[in-house]
Design a binder for these strands. Structure first.
Lengths: 111, 111
DNA sequence: TCCTTATATGCGGATAAACGAATATATATT
DNA sequence: AATATATATTCGTTTATCCGCATATAAGGA
């Protein structure tokens, strides 16, 4: 794949997926929804954040098709669309944990 | 895992990994380095970007231990540290491609 | 219809991130 | 020491993003 084609695809990747992960609260929302479907105010309670903040983050995730909604009366239930986004985050967590382990090892053996 | 512990880990995850992926140019750099180790000005040439821009992005990746360096004379060779970052990006690309395919299918069958 | 609950959004302000030009630093060569 | 090459950093500016308050919208119940 040449650089120009890759650039087109990476632009989309960034716009539609990666940019959604560039905020701690949005990552937290994804992990909460990985456990179970939740209503907006349930998420806001769990994360101890204003409802408007959570709604705004949910909008970002919704626009990118990372979460879907189902209205139930006056409430809206959110859920994960594609669990591979969690796999992807977990891979990064694994990288991070290995980094931390390696750092600790360096500190330990430097005596 | 309780929400507080998860929050601590997710903060680190965001700071040290995800935030590195929140820019198209940095993602491009990672994909270029996935192909082969490269010098700064090789990357700048490939991406048709000013050298200062590339250096600054490389600094972000370096600070997060996602790339490593080896000086060769006056030049510095950059390489990927942990290829799982590419796996993680590829997973997101797969999600994106399935989204696009699904959108196309909806458009096709709406006749 | 009026009120309540749940969610979404408009707004202004604050913060952070990106940019390229210019300059500084580091290494190698003469 | 002087010069050349490669990379890193400083600077001021621009652009994007996040925040919470206040308000708007949507659905259900009295």
């Amino acid at each position: 794949m040449d650089v120009k084609s890759l650039e087109l695809e990476v632009n989309l990747l960034h716009e539609r997926v990666c940019s959604a992960l560039s905020d701690t609260t949005r990552i937290m929302i994804l992990y909460l929804l990985a456990e179970r479907d939740m209503f907006v105010n349930e998420i806001a309670d769990e994360l101890d954040a204003p409802q408007s903040t959570i709604s705004r983050h949910l909008k970002v995730l919704r626009e990118r098709n990372l979460v879907s909604t189902e209205r139930q009366g006056t409430a809206v239930l959110y859920s994960i669309v594609d669990r591979r986004i969690i796999q992807s985050l977990d891979l990064m967590r694994a990288i991070l944990n290995d980094q931390i382990r390696a750092d600790a090892e360096i500190t330990r053996t430097r005596s």
